[in-house]
């Protein structure tokens, strides 16, 4: 069974890009448009890794990560934050919310795949 990755990003271009890179690497990819949508997807599926953006409408990445960490069944799923945010405070906030890693866009697809493999192992 291939590794399932949930990507949460409000940009279609970014979602397409992630799907393109991750599917090429053999992952199964689930997509959500924002945190709220991400939680809806999580109600149906338990991915091996979550990759989420921070700035999104309806529910941002912080709220999303916190919600994931409160979910008994999914609190162990590694969450990588993929963002253009460079603010150290934001990074700390993500970490406090329970993020596993912090990757700054634009991402290197190869390294992203590597990171996902590592945290999913």
């Amino acid at each position: 069974m291939s590794t399932t990755v949930l990507t949460v990003d409000d940009s279609r271009a970014m979602r397409d890009m992630l799907r393109h890179s991750l599917v090429a690497a053999g992952f199964r990819v689930l997509q959500a448009e924002d945190g709220m949508h991400g939680l809806e997807v999580l109600a149906q599926e338990t991915p091996d890794v979550i990759v989420t953006d921070i700035n999104m409408p309806r529910m941002d990445g912080f709220g999303f990560i916190e919600a994931v960490r409160k979910d008994e069944a999914r609190r162990a799923v590694p969450v990588l934050v993929l963002t253009t945010e460079v603010d150290a405070a934001k990074k700390q906030r993500a970490r406090a919310a329970g993020a596993t890693g912090w990757i700054v866009k634009p991402f290197d697809p190869v390294k992203l795949v590597e990171a996902i493999r590592r945290v999913a192992a």
Partner: peptide, 12 residues
């Protein structure tokens, strides 16, 4: 990009 400088030895 940070990934280049961030070889993480452990999954967590």
């Amino acid at each position: 990009p940070m990934m280049e400088e961030e070889p993480e030895p452990e999954p967590a």
